[in-house]
Amino acid sequence: MNELTQIILKSIALFFLVWAAVRLMGKRNMSQINPFSFISYIVIAIVATLMSINLINLATGFITLIVWAAFPIALDYLSIKSRLMHQLINGKEAVLIKHGKIMEENLMRVRMTGEDLLAQLRSKNAFNMADVEFAVMETNGTINPYFKSDKKPVTMHDLEKMSAPQAEPQTVVLDGNMLEEPLASLGLNPQWLSTELDKMGVSLENVFLGQVDSSGDLYVDFFDDAVELPQPKVKEMLYATFEKAQADLLTFNLQTEDEKAKEMYSKNYQSLEDLLNKLRPYLLH
């Protein structure tokens, strides 16, 4: 019984110790660590296990733990400070495809077969070797391809279209509860939210999720999916209003016989045209 309590106490203490050590060693994703820190983690885990089941005594265990936790931290620090150390510790990235050609020697050096390379490329959506201009294996083993310019996903820039800059949306309602902090960070208050919800004719309790987008419009999702409520279409309406006004100006221009008025109408028709072109990326998505 005494031994059991000892094991329990030790395990609990070691649990927190190992937790603290792992936290200190960094915040990287497990799948992204390099082989060396992987080994450190395993050693720490094994030593902690052996200690908690009394296979090795506490002093030996602690020393081992401290060394295996401190060294990775020290090496990480060194690799941040010096580029040379970084290369020594983490290795160097290997170029596997250059100018669309596979570098067989480099493939050999990282011990990969052609099939491994193809499988990795496929996981990055590069099914066709001919589409890949360049590929590099990072120090953590992932392979990142760079596509040939005609095979790259198209962007707004490629289409020569303007796109409105957008800030990230903020979630202001979750599970029927108002989230004060994001609201405040938008410079809005709870009254604003209740006004917006009133406008839609819903109460806060029925809202599962509410998000405010970059332009300050509120999008809501309800608990009851049978409820269909119009989502904000204010911008589309605004655009339509301007288009209608522009058409009206053209009509007036044709109807009037007054030269000065004709000129005024056509001038404003043109300035609305310019305005619509400028507003299009902002109002229509």
Partner: peptide
């Protein structure tokens, strides 16, 4: 919230006002 979008809207107000 976007500064650029905000100035865009402000410009649009000016144009609309003159019309």
């Amino acid at each position: 919230r976007e500064e650029e979008a905000r100035s865009m809207y402000t410009d649009a107000i000016v144009v609309t006002s003159s019309i």
